[in-house]
Design a protein around this nucleic acid. Structure first.
Lengths: 204, 204
DNA sequence: CCCTCCATTGAATGACTGTTCAATCAAATC
DNA sequence: GATTTGATTGAACAGTCATTCAATGGAGGG
């Protein structure tokens, strides 16, 4: 193995990521409590003991997954908001991107499901709960602001912005769920099922 | 206690229902594995041992909940389908009823969340998985048929009926989730967020 | 008043599983 | 080739928790 301390750290990080990405689908399909450390170790292909060389505990793995998930999702949401586009274009782009991501990256769906269940659950580590509480409504707020902007400039229909944002993300989560149920057969619906939440077909 | 064997059975059934309705929210918030038998017993207010007088195992409780949930939901769906109404009226009635139920009966949301998580989970008893596999798409099919009927008679917009049904139920599930997060503060959005999936505002 | 059911308890049991640890291995540096 | 440093293992440990069970209570019927 690499003795170079920098390469060393990199390999360690890669190994941690490998563990995380195996653990995601286990946690998503079984939940934290029902996922055994032995399962994770088997999925990664290492001994149980070695897992504890990379993470202090099963809970730490879980927390790390939650942390990274929100980091990526919220960065993407804020990036979208900053793009120099009209509200209508932003919604269209978000809808198209999300539908494509659903089809192409199974991982997005695993993470989405994991977060959904973790958000409800009483049985998650306190640290994970804190992250969730702090981060979970960022995407909702972004979309609600978008809805408000669109309604102000007249390109969107009416409806309480918060409700519309809720329906928007709810639909995405539901599709993610469905995508996992179907596997590779899955085909995303027309992005208009998302855009229609905000405005009817006819371009202004 | 009632010695009358008929009354006796009735009291036993009531007790079983009491256990089930306490267990639902525990299973919904923690998942099957993370819910301890001790928790359920404490919630009902009985000893752990006594639980086993009413149910053979923790899993049996879970399975019974799943069974009853699908029974009610699917009966309601099929009842709606049989009503002498136009597709448009049926969708409107379903939307209104669901929005009201969400506000008034917290239990509906608990059950909805329980079923959602159970549907994904690998870690549910085989019997529950069988019930889920067998029953879960009844409501989807009912709504898809409705969509097809509405499109045929021209009162609905276009869109793949299966996709529309998916989006419809997904939204309901998402709202149930949100309703639990908010508690008594929750206020259902305008039913049109549901009807709009199928047709635009203007009445034909 | 006794006998028979059922409800009820609380403690014992036994399996499961997260975590620790002492020991081995392998690579790189000197 | 000796030494250091991190990777890796497998078994042991400890705590948790579902399930069982022997014993008690209490209500109605004879």
């Amino acid at each position: 193995m690499a003795r170079n301390p920098i390469q060393n750290k990199r390999m360690r990080d890669e190994r941690r990521q490998a563990i995380l990405s195996c653990a995601v689908r286990l946690f998503a399909t079984r939940g934290l409590a029902a996922t055994k450390v032995a399962d994770i170790a088997a999925a990664v292909g290492m001994s149980q003991g070695l897992l504890y060389h990379y993470f202090r505990s099963k809970e730490e793995i879980f927390v790390e997954i939650v942390r990274q998930a929100f980091e990526r999702m919220n960065t993407a949401a804020r990036d979208l908001e900053r793009l120099p586009l009209t509200p209508r274009q932003k919604v269209e782009q978000a809808a198209t991107t999300l539908m494509r991501t659903l089809e192409e990256h199974e991982n997005f769906s695993w993470i989405s499901v994991l977060i959904s269940t973790a958000s409800i659950s009483d049985a998650v580590p306190a640290e994970a709960r804190a992250i969730i509480r702090r981060e979970r409504d960022v995407p909702y707020r972004v979309v609600a602001r978008l809805a408000r902007a669109g309604q102000r400039d007249g390109s969107f229909d009416d409806g309480r912005p918060d409700d519309l944002a809720l329906v928007f993300w709810t639909t995405v989560k539901g599709l993610a769920l469905h995508r996992l149920a179907l596997g590779p057969t899955y085909k995303s619906p027309d992005p208009r099922v998302l855009t229609r939440i905000f405005f009817s077909e006819t371009p202004t």
